[in-house]
Simulated scan of single mutants.
Amino acid sequence: MPTKIEKVTNLFEAYRNEREAGPMTKYMKNHFPFLGIKSPIRKELEKVFFKETGILKEPFDQEFILELWEKDEREYQYMALTYIEKSLKKLQKGDLALMERLVLEKSWWDTVDAIAAKAVGKIAEKFPEIIEETIDDWAEHDNLWLRRTAILFQLKYKEITDEERLYRYISSNSDSKEFFIQKAIGWALREYSKTNPSSVKQFINENSLAPLSVREGSKYVD
């Protein structure tokens, strides 16, 4: 009987499309190879897998995620993200270590952002002690993807956003020359401005931020 990872591989390989794979790889700056499965088809294949295996009714499977992460083609990491998103209610405090590993391995915005705003955000909401224990350190980490994760983990928090912490993380990264940090700052400010536009406007006016961050963060306050 095939394992779960073998079932996913068989499903995906049947839809490998070399003609589509090239442009998809190029779009991701040639960081990762692709099978060439477009998103709508991949999502249908994921539905088939979830239905056939019943994995969503089982305990959260870290090993399955790591097996997907080890696969070369990027569609397997996207499958892992879908599984995580459908398992958010199952996440426990100990799963933060897995999310950190996923952020650090095969790092790019397409996986990091989903992990930050969904998985890390959910774990921090359920177990807020992990913010001081771990995420505060991420905000000043040498690794830019952990810093981006810290800036973005409250992205969906709206009224429960810890404004002081959000602004503190942004301030400690405001002099970064990294595009992905400047972009994250702008994105975080833009999302929070939907909840508290006056606060965001004041913060932008009173702090020295990169033009990209200001432009992105000011979208709903000007």
Rank of each mutant, 00 (worst) to 15 (best):
12 F>C: 13
110 D>C: 03
31 H>C: 00
24 M>Q: 11
77 Q>F: 06
129 E>R: 08
59 P>Q: 06
24 M>T: 08
40 P>C: 04
131 I>G: 03
19 R>M: 05
53 T>Y: 08
190 R>H: 08
220 Y>S: 05
194 K>F: 04
139 A>F: 00
50 F>N: 04
156 K>S: 11
126 K>H: 03
64 F>A: 02
8 V>A: 10
44 E>A: 15
51 K>F: 07
122 K>W: 00
69 W>V: 08
133 E>D: 12
69 W>E: 04
10 N>W: 04
117 A>T: 15
27 Y>Q: 04
176 S>L: 09
135 I>F: 03
206 E>C: 03
78 Y>G: 05
216 E>P: 02
146 L>G: 04
74 R>N: 10
113 D>I: 12
35 L>C: 01
58 E>C: 11
164 E>K: 15
108 W>L: 01
169 Y>S: 01
181 I>E: 06
161 T>I: 13
86 K>Y: 12
176 S>G: 07
16 R>L: 11
206 E>H: 10
119 A>E: 13
98 L>W: 11
109 W>T: 05
106 K>L: 04
67 E>V: 06
37 I>H: 05
115 I>W: 05
100 E>L: 02
177 K>P: 01
10 N>T: 14
220 Y>D: 09
62 Q>I: 13
73 E>I: 14
190 R>V: 10
103 V>F: 03
184 A>G: 05
203 F>Y: 15
209 L>R: 03
222 D>M: 08
60 F>V: 11
89 K>F: 11
65 I>T: 08
217 G>L: 03
4 K>S: 12
214 V>A: 02
74 R>F: 15
154 Q>G: 04
191 E>H: 11
137 D>R: 00
8 V>Y: 06
134 T>N: 10
169 Y>P: 00
40 P>A: 11
78 Y>C: 08
39 S>Y: 12
99 M>T: 08
68 L>G: 04
33 P>Y: 02
96 L>H: 09
97 A>Q: 13
221 V>M: 05
188 A>W: 07
92 Q>T: 14
48 V>R: 13
93 K>A: 10
117 A>M: 13
147 R>D: 03
57 K>M: 12
48 V>W: 01
205 N>F: 13
72 D>M: 10
135 I>P: 00
15 Y>S: 12
18 E>H: 09
168 R>Y: 01
102 L>S: 07
168 R>F: 00
124 A>M: 02
194 K>H: 02
164 E>P: 00
171 S>V: 14
38 K>M: 12
34 F>I: 03
46 E>H: 14
68 L>Y: 07
152 L>W: 09
139 A>W: 00
117 A>K: 14
186 G>N: 13
4 K>F: 15
140 E>G: 01
189 L>R: 10
69 W>K: 03
190 R>Y: 07
49 F>H: 08
183 K>Q: 07
161 T>G: 06
63 E>H: 14
120 V>Y: 07
105 E>R: 10
52 E>Y: 03
215 R>W: 07
164 E>G: 09
72 D>A: 15
17 N>D: 15
171 S>D: 13
